[in-house]
Design a protein around this nucleic acid. Sequence first.
DNA 1: CCGACAACCTGACGGC
DNA 2: TGCCGTCAGGTTGTCG
Length: 271
Amino acid sequence: MPELPEVETVMRGLAPVWTGRRFARVILHRGDLRRPFPADLGQRLTGASVIACRRRAKYGLVDTDRGDTLILHLGMSGRMRLDPAEIGKHDHVVFTTDEGRTVAFNDARRFGSLDLVATDMAAAHPLLAGIGPEPLGPDFGVGLLVAAFADRLAPAKALLLDQRVVAGLGNIYVCEALFAAGIHPARTGGSIARARLKALAAAVPAVLESAIAAGGSSLRDHAAPDGTLGYFQKGFQVYGREGEPCPKCGTAIERIVQSGRSSFFCPRDQR
DNA sequence: CCGACAACCTGACGGC
DNA sequence: TGCCGTCAGGTTGTCG
């Protein structure tokens, strides 16, 4: 997926194509994803003009002049394909603007979702309510981490993955941020010294900013809306690098499984 | 509160 | 070429 940097990149790519334009056609090919799309999505969006394309956590938000907001989530395999040559197998919804630009919401695994709600209700949407502060915003910092980690027995990995603690981090960037801060992914939250949390509070936005700067990262099937390649952030420090030398000390990177998900870390630098 | 696990889907990849 | 097992960026719910 699409973690925060990828969604940010997608929305930045979508903004110039959609903002100020009207949806001339919105065609629903299939809506039976894990969370079913509203059946009248196409009808309600057709004719509406886009006011803004923004992001909250891993969700893309598209505000229209009808007072509606399209909430989109890319799940694990979701993509927005810009001006595709032809409509593919997993292009579930196809948006066409009054300029004739086409965007296909494509999601092979169908873990993604689309919903349409009143703009002033978007923040209260069940998907968004309860999500923690933006890691790139003013509310994120060492104080928040201290509060969220204090007395917790849960591992640092799980706490950072918890969207209620901080918004938008996924498996990759949690691994990267913990590496940057020198924290072992299995370390319990309550046992981490304040100085380490301070390092973590700096590492989280740094890792995200650098990924956004690189145009979002991609493993194998993610693409920016304009389909550009060269979108790959080649260099994760630890993610996906089991057995390779740690970039800091050369020790072999290890992998453990925590609640069913891989964590990659340097056993020497992360304690 | 915590963690392990399953479920939701398809596709890519490595091994044989 | 093909079959099979394994793994994948997320979220949600259940169970112990």
